[in-house]
Every structure is written in structure tokens, then in C-alpha cells.
Amino acid sequence: MMQKYLFIILGVFAVLSALMVVFEKNPVHSVLYLVLAFFSVAGEFVLLNAQFIAIVNIIVYAGAIMVLFLFVIMLLNLNKETEPHKALWMKFGAVVTGGLLFLVMVSSLKVADSMEVQSLHSGIGTIQQLGKVLFTQFLLPFEVSAVLFLAAMVGAVMLSKKDIK
């Protein structure tokens, strides 16, 4: 019972802060609200007993990626509320599109039966279990992701160099 309440509280937090990301005028405030949303989603992961993913979510997303966003905003000096906004009908269209997409998703799921997620006895989200799977069954994709990071790093450096000789 308590898990349901926690789920609802964290979900409301996540949805509200995600909405504030969209509607906040100042980009720095948007980033901070996004950090709040990521923390709420990490709470949901903990509720699912997926501890490893929860910690990685906080460290990688709320830590590294959000700091990167903040650095870029500070670097480009965008922490003002002077950005141009879309026309009113475009905003209206965006909200209607999001709402319609949500309506389609929910109405297609209406016929599905509800099943409870039993997260206590699974133990599949622990670091031990995930480490075993990651280094046996998924060893090759894990190594390939290192190559992906190398490519991303080289790409980022090449893009931001002023003059490439």
C-alpha cells in the first residue's frame, strides 16, 4: 500500500518538474527542474528495486549530463529570459499534439489487464546480478559502447575546434 503512495508522490513530482522544464522561461531554471525530474525517476527506480539503474541515473544524468548542459548555458551566456518564443498558434498546436498522443497511448492501453509488479524477491536489479549479466552475456556490446564513447569524444573535440588543419 505504501509503495503505491510513494509511486504517486514521486510520479507527481516527476510530471510537474517535467512540465516546468517546458514552461520555465529561464534555461538555468529549466535545467534545475530537469535534475528534480531525474531524481524523482531515480526514486521510481528504487521503488522497482533497480538499485544499479537508480544510482547510474543520478550519477550520469543528474550529475554529468546536467552539468554539461549548465556549462553550455553559462558558456553561451543564455541565462536570460530574452529568448524568442513561438507564435501562439504554434504553442497551442504543440499542446494539442502532446495531448492527442497521450490520448492515443492511454486509449490503446485501456484493454490491457492490470498486473502487479512484484519487485521484492526478484533481486535482478542489484549490482551483483547486473554485473554478472553485463560481463558474461553482454560483454561484446559493453566493449562496443566504449568505442562509441571514443567516437563521440573525437567528434565533440573536432566539432568545437576553431580551425581544423
Binding site: Q3, F7, A18, G99, V106, S114, E116
Partner: peptide
């Protein structure tokens, strides 16, 4: 730790995804 319906997770994900699309 017992029993949140799977549907709730689907609904929450749908809401977050639609907020992203809207944004």
C-alpha cells in the same frame, strides 16, 4: 515493497513521453 500495477508505470511513462514531445 509490494504491488504497484504495471499499468501505472505505463501511464506515467506515457505522460512523461508526451511532455517531452510537447516540449
Amino acid at each position: 515493497i509490494k504491488g504497484v500495477p504495471l499499468n501505472w508505470y505505463i501511464i506515467l511513462s506515457a505522460v512523461l513521453f508526451c511532455i517531452g514531445v510537447m516540449g
